[in-house]
């Protein structure tokens, strides 16, 4: 009984290096307060693409707002996250409706939570596998229902400033759902150095992938809280 309790305690508490790596990932991929210009190119099975451009604002750990600038058919749409809650504001509806975290983000291969809710420290238990010479493997296991995946394997560089290299995202059945690759580490200013491109490959629909690229990320001391309320959407 005692050994079981100890085992559970060990499982619940990540090793210090695992926690540090998760914090590092959250810090570089989703800093506290910023404004960014982002582009997503979704490639479909027939090879054709759809391109979305958006402006994102983030405040603290759990508030994010994305405003779509292109294409013309999506221009004016906005997405808002506040804690566990996600809303989509439609210009032709003039109101916000709740959306699910696991829904596809604009029909691409990221889901809403991948883009709007990067907070692995809050959502996953972490452990580290040091067996791969290419880098440390963070093994993440969901600890909340709102986590987008049941498990994630995340490769980070093994150096003074670890950066993500690639990731695999799994369903509860153990089936791999998506695979991500991180490219083009770039200095965005303000001490933020991180990959500027992520390619997400859909393992369920072969031939589909989406690439998210960050053209600019401007770190901010603070973004007014009233920018992250439903009543400000569409304004």
């Amino acid at each position: 009984m005692l050994s079981l309790a100890l085992a559970l305690a060990v499982a619940a508490e990540p090793a210090p290096d695992a926690l540090a790596l998760v914090r590092r990932y959250d810090a570089v991929m989703s800093p506290a307060n910023f404004e960014a210009q982002t582009k997503m190119v979704a490639t479909r099975e027939d090879g054709t693409t759809r391109t979305y451009k958006m402006k994102t604002q983030k405040s603290g750990k759990d508030k994010l707002r994305a405003q779509f600038l292109e294409p013309a058919s999506a221009k004016g749409q906005e997405m808002l996250r506040n804690g566990e809650n996600l809303w989509l504001w439609m210009p032709n509806l003039k109101r916000a409706v709740r959306v699910a975290a696991r829904d596809s983000f604009m029909g691409g291969d990221f889901n809403n939570a991948d883009v709007l809710r990067v907070n692995y420290q809050a959502d996953y238990h972490a452990s580290v596998d040091n067996s791969d010479p290419a880098g440390d493997i963070l093994v993440l296991k969901s600890k909340t229902q709102s986590a987008s995946y049941d498990a994630i394997k995340l490769w980070m560089t093994r150096d003074q400033s670890p950066q993500p290299i690639k990731a695999e995202f799994y369903a509860a059945s153990g089936k791999i759902l998506r695979r991500a690759e991180f490219f083009d580490v770039k200095d965005f200013g303000g001490g933020l150095v991180r990959p500027s491109r992520i390619k997400m490959t859909n393992e369920i629909s072969v031939g589909r992938s989406s690439e998210m690229s960050w053209e600019a990320i401007n770190l901010k001391d603070e973004i007014p809280a009233q920018r992250f309320v439903i009543d400000d959407l569409g304004r």
């Binding site: 032709n92 509806l93 809280a225 439903i230 009543d231």
Partner: peptide, 23 residues
Amino acid sequence: PSLQRAGFLQLRADAAFESWTLS
């Protein structure tokens, strides 16, 4: 349900905070 554009004439004030709003 995806095309409801028309509004109404109004003068409105919203005091909007993090998780509550008065209008």
